[in-house]
Write a protein that binds this DNA or RNA. Structure first.
Lengths: 220, 220
DNA sequence: CCTACCGATCGGTAGG
DNA sequence: CCTACCGATCGGTAGG
């Protein structure tokens, strides 16, 4: 009862030339196709969820045939892990970049906290913001080993927050217990991925200030 | 290529008596089986996600054969909708019950707010707490009509919060803009379903107080 | 509610 | 990376 796979039916599409395309001097696609797959997967996993997205959907989104993603990834879960790791790496990179802004070290802790909140919201709600929501909501689909790799990155990301919030707590600027406050804060911020609409009134700056107002005693 | 369905293979299991069981006087199962399906679905949808849970899984969880859930529900999505509506109805019931507690009307708004937060956390983290997380995370699997029904219940639930928070805002007891604060608050509270562990230090009371401390200016 | 299925789809693979 | 598949599983149904 083998129906011909519609995704395998090219009859109506123009034929691409066969074989591995010659790489022009500027064309080096080292990993570009892989990267395209990751981006398409992030978008679809976010829109439809991991389990509801077929590898055929992802292949079609980048113009591949149904079996081809498996040339780049061992299995569907490995593609999910790649999405999450990419998301966490870019979040970590953004975090480090923001904290290394010249002169910021001398600024008060509140200023550094604001920068951290803002960069978190940028990664979560700005352009290419599919990766982190996928990470937040699909980790139960990873096996233990993949999960460990993602958790490791997440721990590094959160450790920066923990340190800064301990400093704020020590100087009496944080509202409430640091550990509980951190968890409630991540909830408040991460949930915005569910409702934030850049076309509406509130901006990322508004959100940042609203969050600071809740979690800090003085908004400097 | 029709493999025999393992869920249909009873050869190793003891045979239940055939036919519709006679109902004893006390046995009236009007809708009990349906209710069992909803509860099992809630648990599995929460653990594995909607798309990753098969209707066979759910049937097996209540001792049915693979086709039998469709005697109670038109399709898998209708079962999901039933889970969500049940979750919202019990949340609304709990909310109304709490607010009708004798004498509470005369209490200050802060006290009513505390009661609301606590009942929200009860529904979210207490016994039978699978329904609301399913509602929060799986609504994209509903069709427009089903979604409307759930959104309607959700709006009624949130309207109670909106009213009370407007009152708190008017008397200067709320921190920040009511609309943004409400969204951030739901995020902070709802996210706790991801990390709260009753076996650890923090209790539901701790959580309630921590939340009040963030969102209200004076913790009464 | 069970029996006995079906058509479709899915993840994945061998070989080029 | 495509071709041409496979085995398994899935939602759902007719008939009792």
């Amino acid at each position: 009862m083998q129906a011909s796979d519609p995704a395998d039916d090219v009859s109506t599409e123009p034929r691409r030339p066969r074989g591995r395309p010659r790489k022009g001097a500027d064309e080096r696609d080292d990993g570009n196709r892989r990267q395209e797959l990751i981006r398409a997967a992030a978008r679809l996993f976010r829109q439809q969820g991991f389990a509801a997205t077929s590898t055929r959907d992802i292949a079609a989104a980048v113009g591949m045939r149904s079996g081809s993603p498996f040339y780049h990834f061992d299995n569907k879960e490995a593609l999910l892990a790649a999405v999450m790791e990419e998301g966490m790496r870019s979040a970590l990179a953004r975090q480090a970049e923001v904290l290394q802004r010249p002169g910021l070290e001398q600024e008060p802790a509140v200023t550094r906290f604001r920068a951290l909140v803002r960069s978190h919201l940028d990664v979560l709600l700005g352009p290419d913001s599919d990766f982190i929501p996928v990470m937040l909501y699909e980790w139960r689909s990873l096996n233990a080993q993949q999960r460990e790799a993602v958790v490791d990155l997440k721990n590094r990301y959160e450790a920066v927050w923990t340190t800064l919030m301990a400093e704020l707590h020590a100087s009496g600027q944080l509202r409430g217990d640091p550990s509980l406050t951190r968890l409630l804060m991540f909830g408040a911020l991460n949930w915005s991925a569910q409702w934030f609409d850049p076309k509406r009134r509130a901006t990322l700056d508004d959100l940042t200030e609203a969050a600071l107002q809740l979690f800090l005693k003085e908004s400097a």
